[in-house]
Every structure is written in structure tokens, then in C-alpha cells.
């Protein structure tokens, strides 16, 4: 399971691939209607399966959100869908690329991700974990509706797959609007991963919409093939862009300079600069910055994480100062 940290393909364009399986256990109400007692029952059942299973207990660490330290909580929170962490359990790998959440929106959320594009591998991991639980407990399931979930939108396979892409060249060439419409027609969904910003750093999430009446395999294949087509056009667009090498170099290094030395930085400005510098790293204009480390900045400098680290409510200005400081420390 820990070999997942192997890269998928197209790392220079794909930030990561992620799959989530949503599962509920038979004969217990869904999480939003569970009593504390029922939540504890579920926690105990899952903990037992975990501790008796060699594979799970070897690779995953259990974090009980009620008793965890702040650092553990911050780490495990990334796996949760809800902000509220009370009465939840998180089993996570040390890199947080595989995780199982208990008592989140659904009884069980099994998720895995990897850097770059490799949906099949990520699904394989989720599927294996799903089988382990399936052998020891009964899932809420209906012949026609498939796996029963809290939201009817997930009925069927209850599988959510997404790929996060960096598409600066397509965005710059003004193709995104047309591309979005096409993607929508193909039954997929394209959205920005940041919701409260004007500039999204040309980072897009493409995910499956269909869960009922499609097999897991086809669902993943469908997403994978469309993502590959988008990647092909991004590569073409990048090649076009790079022809103007001097101009691109100037914009890349100018942006890097600001990231390295600025004393205050809003999330919007960061994303705008991040996008240009990432393009520079991906096209080898910048050679001495590691792409993985650079991408990690995205996680570190978002408002949420900065507040968590400071363990305090910060004003906008304070956040911008801390953000700039973290970026400087990471890049210099």
C-alpha cells in the first residue's frame, strides 16, 4: 500500500488523482442521525476490523479525533469532508495518501490519492480496503440503487473520482470556457478547487458525475480518457507558449522573485504567481526547485492551514504576513 507514493503520469500537468468510496453499514442510521452510542458502536466495529487485519494495521495509523494532539488533528483533518471533527476516527498512511474516515458524512469514507495521473492504481487500493470491510460487515445496499448513501447524488457505485490539473497554457489561450462546456457535455464536472479567490492559479478539478448505471471501471476509464485529451491539448498549448521563450522566462522569474522576497501576500496573489512559477518548473526554465515541494506550498499556505498553525483567529493582514513568511522559508 505504501508504494502508492510512486508517481503517476504527467506530473508536470497533473497535481494528483484521487478516489473516494462512500460506504454505510447496514442497520445503523446514517451519520447525521446517529446517537453518540451508535457512533461509538461503529467506531468499535471498525477498530476491531482494523486491528485484526494485517494489511490495514501495518500501513495505517489510527487517529481518534476526540483524543488526538493538535498536530495529529491537523494532519488527519485533510482526510475529512466535514470541518467538525468530534467523534470521528481517521486511519491514515504516514503520507496521508491513503485514509479511511469513520463517522464523517458517511459511516466509512475510503480514499486514496497519488501524485500525477494514475486512477487505476488509486482505485485498486480503495477497492482492496473496501473488500476487507465487506468481508467482516454488511453494507447498506440495494439491488437497484446500489450502495446507499446520505446524499442520493452518490447512489450506485458511490465512487467519487477526481483529477487535479494545472492548465496555465489552456487558460492563457482562452480555451477554458469552451473546454468547460465540452467536459460538462461528457458527463463530467469541472470546477475550481478554490472557492473564495478570483484567480484560481489555473488549477482545475475534473470529476465524475455519474454513479448510477455505470460500472466503477467505466466510470474511471471515462474520466481518465477525457483527462488525457485535456493533457494533450495543454501540452500543445504549452509548446506554443514556450515559443515566446524570453517573455515566458521573464514572467516566470519575475514571479519567483516576488514569491521569494515579498513580505505580505494574499492567497490570490500567491495563486497567480504559483501558476507561473509552476509552469517554469514544469518546462525546466527553473531547475533548482523540486516540483513536489513546490506543490506542497498549496496545502501549507491556504487560509485554513495558517489559522490552524497559529491556533488563533487572525486578521486578513496577519494571514498575508504569515503566508509570505512561510513561502520565503520554503523557497530560500
Amino acid at each position: 500500500m505504501n508504494q502508492i507514493s510512486n508517481y503517476g503520469e504527467y506530473r508536470e500537468i497533473v497535481l494528483f488523482s484521487k478516489i473516494k468510496l462512500l460506504r454505510n453499514v447496514e442497520n445503523l442510521p446514517f451519520c447525521n442521525r446517529m446517537t453518540l452510542e451508535q457512533k461509538n458502536v461503529l467506531k468499535n466495529i471498525i477498530t476491531q476490523i482494523y486491528s485484526y487485519n494485517e494489511y490495514l494495521s501495518k500501513y495505517l495509523t489510527m487517529i481518534d479525533m476526540n483524543t488526538a494532539t493538535d498536530d495529529e488533528k491537523n494532519f488527519a483533518k485533510q482526510a475529512l469532508s466535514e470541518q467538525d471533527e468530534v467523534d470521528k476516527l481517521v486511519f491514515t498512511s504516514h503520507k496521508n495518501d491513503v485514509s479511511i474516515c469513520v463517522n464523517d458524512i458517511e459511516h466509512l469514507t475510503i480514499q486514496a490519492n497519488c501524485l500525477g495521473l494514475n486512477l487505476n492504481k488509486v482505485y485498486g487500493i480503495c477497492n482492496n480496503i473496501d473488500d476487507i470491510f465487506d468481508n467482516s460487515l454488511s453494507y447498506a445496499f440495494d439491488e437497484k440503487k446500489g450502495y446507499l448513501t446520505t446524499s442520493p447524488y452518490d447512489l450506485g457505485t458511490a465512487l467519487r473520482a477526481c483529477v487535479i490539473l494545472h492548465l496555465p497554457a489552456l487558460e492563457q489561450s482562452g480555451m477554458m470556457q469552451r473546454l468547460s462546456a465540452t467536459i460538462e457535455k461528457m458527463g463530467l464536472r469541472i470546477s475550481s478547487i478554490f472557492s473564495d479567490v478570483d484567480d484560481n492559479g489555473a488549477i482545475y478539478r475534473i470529476s465524475n458525475q455519474l454513479t448510477l448505471g455505470i460500472t466503477e471501471k467505466d466510470s474511471i476509464l471515462n474520466l481518465d480518457s477525457i483527462v488525457r485529451q485535456i493533457i494533450d491539448s495543454e501540452i500543445l498549448a504549452r509548446n506554443n507558449l514556450i515559443q515566446n521563450r524570453l517573455q515566458v522566462e521573464d514572467s516566470v522569474f519575475r514571479s519567483l522573485g516576488i514569491l521569494k522576497y515579498a513580505r505580505s501576500m494574499s492567497i490570490d496573489e500567491f495563486l497567480r504567481l504559483y501558476s507561473r512559477v509552476r509552469l517554469g518548473i514544469a518546462t525546466s526554465i527553473i531547475k533548482d526547485i523540486d516540483l513536489d515541494k513546490f506543490d506542497e506550498l498549496l496545502n501549507i499556505v491556504n487560509d485554513n492551514n495558517i489559522c490552524n498553525m497559529a491556533k488563533d483567529r487572525l486578521s486578513l493582514g496577519e494571514k498575508d504576513f504569515i503566508r509570505a513568511k512561510i513561502i520565503r522559508e520554503n523557497l530560500n
Binding site: S138, E143, K144, K145, L155, G156, T157, L159, G213, I214
Partner: peptide, 26 residues
């Protein structure tokens, strides 16, 4: 609920993975 489910998913029926218990039944 069913009419809303139809609005979202059409008349589709589950054809994906089945849990062990459902497999036994079928």
C-alpha cells in the same frame, strides 16, 4: 424521493460492484 433520484440519475439501475451479502442473494 424516487422522483428526485430519477431527475438526477435517470431511470438507471446499479450495475457496478456488489457487496458480499448482495452477491449471495443474487
Amino acid at each position: 424521493i424516487n422522483r428526485t433520484i430519477e431527475k438526477v440519475h435517470g431511470k438507471a439501475v446499479h450495475i457496478g460492484k456488489k457487496p458480499r451479502s448482495a452477491k449471495k442473494i443474487s
